[in-house]
Amino acid sequence: MNSHLPLKLLIELAQKDVDEAAKLLGDRQRQRAEVERQLEALKTYRHEYRSRMQTATQTGMAGGDWRNFQQFIDTLDSAIGQQQMLLQQAQDRLEAARREWQAQQRRLNSFGTLATRAQAREDLRVARREQKDNDEYAARATRRRADTSPL
């Protein structure tokens, strides 16, 4: 039974690692979703602002106002580009966290397999010992009967 104690400890530690990796994966998923939400908000705002600019252009607008609109749209485009880079980084971190969680899960599964095999070996050893004890008991009983039976 003592040989199972280190394996049990390894399984507990591996489970802790899986739990931590799962927590990190969840955090990364939330971070990616937030970055994506911000990107979509920027795109929506740009679209709305662009529509307002087109409406203002159709009704007539001073050149300075048009430049201000255009500069602001350029600023939004720059912000969208930066947000897209942040989204890619968030996606990369998410994928790395997913790979880490999968690796930790495989490690835990490996320890589980080892534990199952060890338990099977122990069960077989116990079964053999019980069979040997039963055989010895039957042999003694047969000898006793042979010793006590009249010839």
Rank of each mutant, 00 (worst) to 15 (best):
N2M: 11
N2G: 04
L5E: 14
P6R: 03
P6K: 03
K8A: 13
K8P: 00
L9D: 10
L9Y: 00
L10M: 09
I11A: 08
I11E: 11
I11V: 13
E12P: 01
E12Q: 11
E12L: 08
A14G: 11
K16Y: 06
D17N: 13
V18T: 02
D19Y: 03
D19W: 03
E20S: 11
A21T: 04
K23H: 13
K23R: 07
L24S: 07
L25T: 05
L25N: 11
G26N: 06
D27I: 10
R28Q: 15
Q29C: 04
Q29R: 13
R30L: 14
R30A: 15
R32L: 14
R32N: 08
A33C: 07
A33W: 15
A33I: 03
A33Y: 14
E34P: 02
V35C: 02
V35I: 14
V35H: 04
E36F: 12
Q38T: 12
L39T: 13
L39E: 10
L39W: 14
E40N: 15
L42K: 08
K43L: 08
K43T: 04
K43V: 04
T44F: 11
Y45H: 12
Y45D: 15
E48C: 03
Y49C: 04
Y49E: 13
R50P: 00
S51N: 05
M53F: 01
Q54M: 08
T55I: 04
A56P: 05
A56I: 01
A56E: 01
A56R: 04
T57A: 06
T59I: 01
T59W: 00
M61Y: 01
M61I: 10
A62V: 06
A62Q: 06
A62M: 07
G63T: 14
G64K: 05
D65F: 03
D65E: 12
W66E: 15
N68E: 07
N68C: 00
F69L: 03
Q70P: 00
Q71Y: 01
Q71N: 10
I73N: 04
I73R: 12
I73V: 15
D74N: 10
T75S: 12
T75A: 12
L76K: 03
D77Y: 06
D77Q: 08
A79N: 01
G81Q: 01
G81S: 08
Q83L: 04
M85W: 07
M85C: 03
L86M: 11
Q88K: 00
Q88F: 05
Q89H: 12
A90N: 04
A90M: 06
D92F: 09
D92Y: 02
L94A: 09
L94V: 01
E95G: 03
A97E: 09
R98W: 06
R98H: 14
R98K: 09
W101M: 05
A103S: 13
Q104S: 09
R106I: 08
R106W: 05
R106D: 14
N109P: 01
S110L: 09
F111E: 02
F111Q: 06
F111T: 08
F111K: 07
T113Q: 09
T113R: 13
L114D: 09
L114W: 10
A115D: 12
T116F: 02
T116C: 02
